[in-house]
Amino acid sequence: MQSWQMQTAKARFPELVKHAVQEGPQDITLHGRSVAVLVSRELFDRLSGNEQSLVDFMRASPLQEHDGIEFERSCSLPREITF
């Protein structure tokens, strides 16, 4: 992972973004300490699980076509909480 000083990252931001997209995460430092990492949108979505929207996920469900599904609810009492 390439490291960029904060001042350099600010001055060369378009280049920094290009490196993140083409080469992977880019480390940003301030006073010699790592303070941030810039990643491409593609990598961020993959790591955070945002590749698919909830609507798309629900539409892909094998149960999507079934209108008459009923779910049974438990009639048991809730557990007792003691302090």
Results as ranks from 00 to 15, higher is better:
residue 32 G to V: 05
residue 17 V to H: 01
residue 13 F to K: 01
residue 54 L to K: 07
residue 64 Q to Y: 13
residue 29 T to L: 14
residue 47 L to Y: 05
residue 71 F to H: 06
residue 60 A to L: 08
residue 43 L to T: 09
residue 1 M to V: 06
residue 24 G to M: 09
residue 67 D to W: 04
residue 52 Q to T: 11
residue 76 S to D: 14
residue 77 L to V: 06
residue 64 Q to N: 10
residue 22 Q to A: 11
residue 15 E to P: 01
residue 16 L to H: 06
residue 70 E to S: 14
residue 18 K to F: 02
residue 14 P to R: 04
residue 70 E to K: 13
residue 51 E to M: 14
residue 22 Q to R: 11
residue 27 D to E: 15
residue 6 M to D: 08
residue 49 G to R: 03
residue 19 H to L: 09
residue 66 H to R: 11
residue 22 Q to L: 14
residue 66 H to I: 08
residue 30 L to Q: 14
residue 13 F to L: 15
residue 41 R to E: 11
residue 58 M to D: 09
residue 2 Q to C: 00
residue 53 S to W: 03
residue 38 L to T: 05
residue 40 S to I: 01
residue 20 A to I: 00
residue 47 L to S: 05
residue 55 V to K: 15
residue 43 L to I: 03
residue 46 R to H: 06
residue 34 S to D: 02
residue 18 K to L: 12
residue 21 V to C: 06
residue 74 S to I: 04
residue 70 E to C: 04
residue 36 A to K: 05
residue 65 E to I: 02
residue 50 N to K: 10
residue 26 Q to G: 07
residue 71 F to I: 14
residue 58 M to W: 06
residue 79 R to T: 08
residue 63 L to Y: 10
residue 46 R to G: 01
residue 33 R to H: 07
residue 8 T to S: 13
residue 32 G to Y: 10
residue 55 V to E: 13
residue 8 T to H: 10
residue 57 F to W: 10
residue 76 S to E: 13
residue 46 R to M: 02
residue 11 A to W: 02
residue 77 L to S: 11
residue 50 N to C: 07
residue 83 F to E: 12
residue 23 E to R: 12
residue 4 W to A: 01
residue 70 E to T: 05
residue 68 G to Q: 12
residue 49 G to V: 12
residue 15 E to R: 07
residue 74 S to H: 05
residue 51 E to Y: 00
residue 30 L to N: 07
residue 25 P to K: 05
residue 9 A to Y: 00
residue 66 H to D: 10
residue 65 E to S: 11
residue 32 G to S: 07
residue 10 K to L: 12
residue 38 L to F: 03
residue 44 F to V: 00
residue 21 V to S: 06
residue 62 P to Q: 04
residue 11 A to Q: 15
residue 76 S to Q: 14
residue 69 I to A: 12
residue 61 S to V: 02
residue 20 A to S: 14
residue 57 F to I: 12
residue 50 N to V: 00
residue 19 H to I: 06
residue 37 V to G: 01
residue 83 F to K: 06
residue 11 A to F: 01
residue 27 D to Q: 13
residue 38 L to K: 04
residue 33 R to D: 13
residue 72 E to G: 05
residue 58 M to K: 14
residue 65 E to M: 09
residue 31 H to R: 13
residue 43 L to P: 01
residue 42 E to K: 11
residue 81 I to W: 04
residue 69 I to W: 02
residue 9 A to S: 03
residue 47 L to G: 05
residue 1 M to G: 10
residue 7 Q to A: 15
residue 56 D to T: 15
residue 27 D to H: 02
residue 38 L to S: 12
residue 39 V to T: 13
residue 14 P to S: 05
residue 4 W to T: 00
residue 6 M to W: 14
residue 37 V to N: 11
residue 48 S to K: 09
residue 35 V to H: 02
residue 49 G to S: 03
residue 50 N to I: 00
residue 80 E to H: 04
residue 27 D to G: 07
residue 17 V to W: 00
residue 73 R to T: 07
residue 19 H to C: 03
residue 32 G to W: 08
residue 79 R to H: 06
residue 39 V to D: 03
residue 8 T to V: 13
